[in-house]
Design a protein around this nucleic acid. Structure first.
Lengths: 222, 222
DNA sequence: CTATAAAAACTTGTATACAAGTTTGGTGTG
DNA sequence: CACACCAAACTTGTATACAAGTTTTTATAG
């Protein structure tokens, strides 16, 4: 009566996904199904499943009978991911603003408070984690799991850029905090239009640094 | 110097996808990797790849070591697909309305004209095809292929409902035509808000018939 | 030393064999 | 007839072998 439901491809998918968005596996780098299989002590079959999913997400490209490569960054792909994310986040925040669910609002307030703490202690990873939590709290109100999933998957493309920019540009804690506060404030005021505006501005932040980052890392872009 | 790039899993993916959204393979029906492999004269490997993609799209569910089943319809999934589609279509039409690209507008006018013809001749499939073309024309203006892809994949869930409703409710040519005209008119008037409103109403049509269809086909719903 | 060609090593795509769990059908017993 | 139990047939997950094309390396000729 074992209901396993977990496959061997899930861990390797999670590993590769995390390594790619954290830029520890660099854009353009070659992956080997055989090496990965040996590394994880499994056969090529589940490795190929994991890679197939990453291909669907646009994070990996397979050149037939030649090799598997981590996708390079491209302004087009990143702009597109931002567009999709913005469309969904805006639609979500509009629903939240109209419903003003107490639970969600309180959760967001708590997260913002924690973010202020993390900012004060310069805890970058914690701050980023809380950023995700803020957006996921809003998304979870809609109970639309798939929408949240798509956002997460698209955000992978944006996170690669953000993590690349961390080293040189640094985390702009105050900007993000102000924007989160603006979004929450608009929600509380039941002002869907203002919430839309605030969320739009927030999700477009990445575009402001994109050109600079491309200039500084031309080898990572296609 | 053969650049094949096509895999044997693509045809079977296309086949299953088409059969599922056209409801020729019914919700809840069992699929067999072995049967499909024999049917297409290939091995289980590419069949499994195709099925894995369908699982990602929510059209198929795999019960481990027990069977593969076409997903049943569910109000939650359908509502969610509608939400995602609406968010993206609205974001797209807003861009089009602000830019007013001549090519796109002319294309849409042509499509609407063809739709009027198809409606007059009661050509259901042609009318539906042109409906898709209308939306894809708007999407292609943004040059965001992935956004269009996501819309198409989410629309699969909506098409199942729509095709189910065709038999009893029938195609409401005039409603759709009026809505397409309203969208295009708002675009021409550079009125993004009106375009948003028109697109929202258009994409929400499916929700109006959802309850009735569920009542008439309880066995297809989970 | 350079250039070219052949061969060896890798690469992914596919077929197939096996493992392990689930479902189904039948058989025997009460 | 009803029910429990066992076996056979199916199911998906995984490992592995092979096919076919690409890349790299090596050796040989000039």
């Amino acid at each position: 009566m074992k209901k396993d439901q977990t496959t061997s491809s899930q861990p390797i998918f999670n590993y590769l996904h995390e390594q790619i968005i954290s830029m520890q596996i660099q854009p353009g780098q070659k992956l080997s199904e055989n090496s990965l299989a040996k590394q994880f002590n499994i056969s090529r079959t589940p490795v190929r499943e994991a890679i197939a999913r990453l291909v669907q997400l646009g994070l990996v490209e397979v050149k037939i009978k030649s090799g598997t490569f981590v996708s390079k960054l491209s302004v087009k792909n990143i702009t597109e991911a931002q567009f999709i994310r913005q469309a969904l986040e805006v639609a979500i925040v509009q629903r939240v603003a109209k419903a003003q669910p107490t639970n969600t609002i309180e959760k967001c307030e708590q997260i913002i408070a924690l973010q202020a703490q993390a900012a004060g202690q310069n805890h970058v990873l914690e701050f980023q984690y809380l950023d995700d939590q803020f957006h996921q709290s809003l998304a979870s109100f809609t109970q639309f799991d798939r929408a949240g999933q798509i956002i997460q998957f698209e955000k992978a493309h944006l996170d690669r850029v953000r993590n690349l920019g961390l080293k040189e540009i640094g985390n702009q804690y105050d900007r993000v905090l102000n924007q989160h506060n603006a979004i929450l404030s608009a929600i509380k005021n039941k002002n869907a239009d203002l919430a839309t505006q605030a969320m739009t501005q927030h999700t477009q932040e990445i575009l402001l640094i994109l050109n600079d980052i491309q200039k500084n890392h031309l080898d990572f872009f296609e």
